[in-house]
């Protein structure tokens, strides 16, 4: 199924998640008016989430995103790993 969630997150910007899943996450698209440098890191974040089980925990998603952000020295403005994880968990409910 395809689910969708959108929130104005506590860091101030809008995060939208569209996720296709059955038992596992098959496809995810994260959009919004936030800032992330370098921008291409969001593609890596989406890839790292694809294949996770649909009942993946909030903490695991946060850890996945943080690891990628750390590896590529990413700066996020108006969004955070926790915010993305929260919107994704909401979509997967």
């Amino acid at each position: 199924m395809i689910a969708y969630s959108s929130q104005k997150v506590k860091e101030g910007k809008i995060v939208k998640v569209e996720v296709e899943f059955d038992d596992v996450i098959k496809k995810i698209r994260i959009t919004g008016d936030f800032f992330m440098h370098p921008e291409e890191v969001l593609d890596d974040i989406e890839k790292s989430i694809t294949g996770l089980k649909k009942d993946v925990s909030f903490d695991t998603i946060v850890l996945k995103i943080k690891n990628i952000a750390k590896d590529s020295n990413t700066q996020m403005i108006g969004v955070s790993p926790e915010s993305i994880a929260e919107v994704l968990r909401e979509a997967l409910k």
């Binding site: 939208k16 698209r29 994260i30 959009t31 919004g32 008016d33 936030f34 992330m36 921008e39 969001l42």
Partner: peptide, 9 residues
Amino acid sequence: IGYFQGIKD
């Protein structure tokens, strides 16, 4: 639109 936005959205 911003880099991360969906154009159709």
